[in-house]
């Protein structure tokens, strides 16, 4: 019995390692804001930069989703529904992870870091503060890259879209990444048996921030002063 138990655990570590290393390998490249030096430094420029960045990152994130084990086996409408629900959570989680080593700043891109003062000038202060709350939470926990990529996959598969056709297939995908996280924590943080749960319990805050962000950018869209690319607009409209 002890041998069997050991073998099962080893097998599960191998399975976990496979999913986690697959997710690590699928991580998109770094993004750069490359903001236009010809534009005056005002709120419109900042928001234009953010919207352009978000649009380019969305393309990368869709490519990333396609690498998720099992995602491409879902029906195309279900793939769309998951992304339409979780796209902002994925964008925010990436900003949060990039910002873990920054001091009270959000690293929107390698070359685009925003502090509270700049956020205030852009009308983003509330959102900035909310995202920093999540940054502080993960920093206190010492969030690792492996955990970040797995959480991102959980956020995608846990999008709670009301229009999923094949709920069992989406649930199967979610179970796979959830199990990978649990196995990772068992093998790397065995001294904290509640760590996987603690990480999953951060997802409601992520969803709350994401809803705020969508609401904010919808108002920016309605205002009509900031140019937005089509993919970003499509997804804003999906919410």
């Amino acid at each position: 019995l002890p041998q069997m138990h050991k073998r099962t655990r080893t097998e599960s570590y191998i399975a976990e390692n496979k999913v986690v290393s697959h997710l690590l390998g699928a991580e998109p490249e770094k993004v750069y804001a490359m903001h236009d030096p010809a534009l005056p430094d005002d709120d419109i420029k900042a928001l234009t930069t953010l919207c352009d960045l978000a649009d380019r990152e969305l393309v990368l994130n869709i490519g990333w989703a396609k690498h998720l084990p099992g995602f491409s086996s879902l029906s195309l409408p279900d793939q769309m529904r998951l992304l339409q629900s979780a796209w902002m959570e994925i964008l925010i989680l990436r900003v949060v992870f990039r910002s873990l080593d920054a001091q009270d700043c959000l690293v929107f891109a390698e070359d685009y870091v925003m502090d509270a003062e700049q956020a205030k000038q852009t009308g983003l202060l509330e959102l900035h503060g909310a995202i920093l709350q999540l940054v502080r939470k993960y920093r206190a926990m010492g969030l690792e890259r492996e955990e970040f990529v797995t959480l991102k996959a959980i956020a995608l598969t846990n999008s709670d879209s009301m229009h999923i056709e094949d709920i069992d297939a989406v649930q199967g995908l979610q179970d796979c990444v959830h199990e990978a996280l649990q196995d990772y924590e068992r093998s790397h943080h065995g001294n904290d048996p509640r760590r996987a749960g603690k990480l999953i319990m951060t997802l409601p805050l992520l969803r709350q921030i994401s809803a705020k962000a969508v609401q904010y950018f919808c108002s920016v869209k309605q205002d009509g002063r900031v140019p937005m690319h089509k993919l970003f607009l499509e997804l804003l409209e999906a919410n």
Partner: peptide, 19 residues
Amino acid sequence: TERHKILHRLLQDSSPADG
């Protein structure tokens, strides 16, 4: 799908990461 043409196209595109 009609309202989400770009998302649809990117998901259908056989290359995994480029738009």
